[in-house]
């Protein structure tokens, strides 16, 4: 248990630092930035205390917000996806989730992609909607969500494949 807690704490800090120091400055094609720090929320152990999880997600988003001077947009998006995550777990993994025994490095590629994409797009949509905060620019919001979302999904899949602990 302690080892797992330490692992989660280390992941929290490392993901924030990597996000604010590297991935916030990519600006591919001028404005496309991946937000890979939400891997923390996506891969958080499913059988844990939900209240604590929502709170940790808030803390994560809040830290990224302070670093990137963006008010509370990341925090709002993170809290939301943390709260609605069980719905998507049930939707993608079905019966496996009911036994609360998902191992994220053992699931197959298709359902992993569905699960990742759903959470990432919801996160990006909320984040950009709050950041731009202007309903007349809905097209800009959707455009940014789509392009950044695709970038984030690709990077998240690559990172989880690279750092998975499955040894052959």
């Amino acid at each position: 248990m302690t080892k797992e807690t330490l692992n989660i704490a280390a992941r929290f800090v490392v993901l924030i630092l990597v996000q604010v120091l590297i991935f916030n400055h990519i600006n591919f094609m001028g404005y496309i930035n991946p937000y890979i720090y939400i891997i923390f929320i996506i891969l958080f152990p499913a059988n844990n205390n939900r209240t604590l999880f929502v709170f940790l997600a808030f803390l994560l988003g809040f830290c990224v917000d302070i670093f990137s001077d963006s008010g509370g947009v990341h925090a709002a998006a993170c809290v939301t996806i943390a709260y609605i995550r069980p719905i998507f777990l049930k939707f993608t993994f079905g019966t496996v989730y009911d036994y609360q025994s998902i191992k994220f490095n053992q699931i197959d590629f298709g359902s992993k992609l569905t699960y990742f994409s759903a959470l990432i797009f919801i996160h990006h949509l909320i984040m950009y909607a709050l950041e731009i905060f202007n309903i007349s620019k809905i097209l800009l919001i959707l455009q940014k969500t789509l392009f950044s979302g695709i970038f984030t999904i690709i990077l998240c899949m690559l990172i989880t494949i690279l750092f998975s602990q499955k040894r052959k």
Partner: peptide
């Protein structure tokens, strides 16, 4: 409903910060 209440509280807090920053 403590999870939902915590969610509402934190979401409200982040909205507050967002509006402040605008």
């Amino acid at each position: 409903n403590k999870t939902f209440l915590v969610f509402l509280l934190l979401f409200g807090l982040s909205l507050f910060f967002t509006i402040q920053s605008h």
